[in-house]
Amino acid sequence: MFHTVEWRNSKWPKHPIGKEIVKKVKSNTFWNNMHTCLKIMAPLVDVIRMVDTEEKHSMAYIYSAIEDCKLKVKTNLGDQNDDDRELWKKMERILDRRWSGMLQKPLHAAAHYLNPQYYYATLTSSDEMESNTKLKEGLLDCIAKLALDEEDESQILRDLIVYRTKAGRLGKRGAQACVKTIAPVEWWITFGSEVPALQRFVKSVIGLTSAASPCERIWSTFDNLSCF
């Protein structure tokens, strides 16, 4: 950057601020800090890209993506000394505040719970979800808000038993074999006809699209900044 014609012909090489910038950018401290920033930001950017993709309905994956993101940030920062641990605690508080305060909604919980790729992932994954109080509360709140009426809500709750116990067509070998190979919304369309109330509810939740428009506005601002 400092060897470009634009930089050399500008006022900054001889300006005190420009000299200070050169000094900082050439220091090891600056690049060590940049490395730390990348450890934190790379997993977050992966989530943003996933949210903004047109390849799949991302609503069914957001809840898990955030949890995976936190784990990746923690792993990237390491646990070798007190500074590493303190930095992770600080980042964890920030991520939890943003997730819990602005992003974590009943809709995300319901979409995660009703994604068969997660619910049927292992022999114990369904039990883990059932014991997750916040997840179940979010699911039930979402059902209460989106159900057509009280009878529809009751039927959706009864249909959840079929989902949980793999009863009927949902538990057939073909349905279980397709859990990881087709999109969640397509799985429900294909195999959920025996639980029509739940099927309709699921399609209205995990069939939603999402976007990273606020982030795109920030990126557009960055594009307008001078490269030097």
Rank of each mutant, 00 (worst) to 15 (best):
I94N: 09
K90E: 08
G101R: 00
G101Y: 03
I94E: 04
R97E: 04
D79T: 08
R98K: 05
K105Y: 13
P106Q: 03
L77E: 00
G78V: 06
L87K: 13
G78D: 10
R93I: 01
G78R: 01
L77C: 04
G78A: 11
K105N: 12
E86D: 03
N81Q: 06
N81H: 06
D82V: 06
D79K: 11
R93V: 01
L107T: 14
K89L: 03
L107V: 14
L87W: 07
L95H: 09
K90G: 11
R85K: 15
R85S: 13
R85I: 04
M91D: 00
E92A: 15
W88F: 15
R97M: 03
G101M: 01
L87F: 12
M102T: 07
K90S: 13
R98H: 09
R97L: 01
M102I: 05
M91L: 06
E92I: 11
D79G: 13
K90L: 10
M102H: 08
L103K: 13
M91P: 00
M91Q: 08
D84E: 07
Q80L: 15
L87N: 07
M102K: 08
W88P: 08
R93G: 04
L103E: 02
I94S: 07
D96M: 06
R93Y: 07
P106W: 01
R93D: 08
L107R: 06
Q104I: 00
S100W: 01
Q80V: 11
K90P: 00
L107W: 02
D96Q: 05
R93S: 09
D82T: 09
D84Q: 10
L107C: 08
S100Y: 04
S100I: 03
W99T: 15
W88Q: 12
P106E: 01
S100F: 04
G78H: 07
D96L: 07
D82K: 15
L95K: 03
W88G: 14
D83Y: 12
R85M: 13
R98V: 04
M102R: 07
K105E: 03
P106Y: 02
L103W: 12
M91T: 02
K105C: 15
N81R: 02
G78I: 03
D79M: 05
L95V: 11
L107Y: 06
R93F: 10
M102A: 14
M102W: 02
